[in-house]
């Protein structure tokens, strides 16, 4: 079995230093966005998808587990947050907490089932589980079925930050994204992350070394699901709705596509991929169904000729790990 990424060595101080430099650059660039006049809604949407893809990448890039059902965390957290804000009138911070905690709970339940198989079966199981949740959301009344939950009030975060102001909202989303990114960064470069990589490379050997690999995989799955849920909760404040689209398998496919284009198993790949794919969707919105075809073509081209993704190719060229 060939490896998914070039990154098989333990985290070296040089690599962590490289990544910190890029992280600071990225944070500074993103913080400057409102000054440039770029449409903030687009960047906020891309940031939510970037965090989502980073969470997904934690599983595939470092654990070797390809989840084809990550939309279930995005959509579920979105529904929970939206319901808490609109029906219960809770404050935004509580809404985010409920959404994220809900996704974590779903992560525990689905994780226990999904990690029982590896490789290709894991992908099929996560896809089936997310389809199960999709049908449940289609039938339960609180999601309002095909209509979704619309017109969600944004409110004031911690009672002070007015989220209906787009600049304030932008910095809140940015803070959420950077925080989530640092969690992934920390997890990947910790002893926990090294064990995950060991499991990806050779699970039998990791077991023989005394690691309870199931515990590590479950923990990674829950962490990934929780962060994906966090992204889903943040997205509610940007889009102000929660709908079935976010739980559908096409969304799971989009998450995979974003990460593949950016670079599987690279720290910054999912972020770059999110901006590329979201920008593409914005510009091609007028082409209707052809967007799906173009996404399919990107999948095929990436798999056949461009398996390292954008950031992976750059890192390979400079012989660095990003």
């Amino acid at each position: 079995m060939s490896v998914l990424t070039d990154d098989t060595l333990p985290a070296s101080p040089r690599r962590i230093r490289d990544e910190m430099v890029v992280f600071v650059l990225m944070a500074a660039l993103l913080a400057a966005v409102p000054l440039t006049g770029i449409y903030p809604f687009f960047v906020m949407q891309a940031l939510c998808f970037a965090l989502l893809a980073c969470a997904f990448n934690l599983l595939i890039g470092y654990g070797g587990l390809l989840s084809f059902g990550h939309a279930m965390f995005l959509g579920s957290a979105g529904y929970f947050t939206a319901h808490a804000l609109k029906e219960w009138g809770l404050a935004p911070e509580l809404g985010i907490l409920i959404g994220t905690a809900g996704a974590a709970g779903i992560g525990v339940v689905t994780g226990v089932v999904a990690i029982r198989r590896q490789g290709i079966y894991f992908s099929m199981i996560t896809l089936a589980l997310s389809q199960l949740l999709y049908f449940i959301y289609l039938q339960t009344p609180f999601t309002h079925g095909e209509d979704g939950i619309q017109g969600i009030p944004q409110g004031r975060l911690f009672g002070i930050l007015d989220l209906s102001n787009s600049t304030v909202l932008y910095y809140v989303i940015l803070a959420g994204f950077l925080g989530g990114f640092l969690v992934v960064f920390r997890a990947v470069n910790s002893p926990f992350g090294e064990v995950l990589k060991a499991i990806r490379e050779n699970e039998q050997r990791a077991i023989s070394l005394g690691y309870k690999t199931d515990h590590y995989k479950l923990l990674a799955f829950i962490l990934s699901g929780t962060l994906a849920g966090f992204a889903g909760s943040l997205k509610v404040f940007v889009a102000q709705n929660a709908s079935l689209t976010d739980v559908h398998w096409t969304m799971s496919g989009e998450i995979v596509l974003i990460t593949l284009v950016g670079g599987l198993g690279t720290m910054f790949g999912p972020v770059v991929g999110a901006f590329v794919i979201i920008a593409m969707q914005q510009y091609l919105a007028g082409f209707g169904q052809w967007v799906t075809v173009i996404q399919g073509v990107i999948f095929v081209v990436c798999v056949l000729t461009f398996r390292r993704g954008i950031v992976g190719e750059i890192a390979h060229y400079f012989r660095r790990s990003l």
Partner: peptide
């Protein structure tokens, strides 16, 4: 055929892309 020897997951991703293309074209 170019995927033989690579991780199984690439086959899944490639055929997912093919499914999107085929279904998208018919839907158009």
């Amino acid at each position: 055929q170019w995927l033989s020897g690579l991780d199984h997951l690439y086959g899944l991703l490639l055929t997912f892309g093919l499914a999107l293309i085929i279904q998208g074209v018919f839907q158009n």
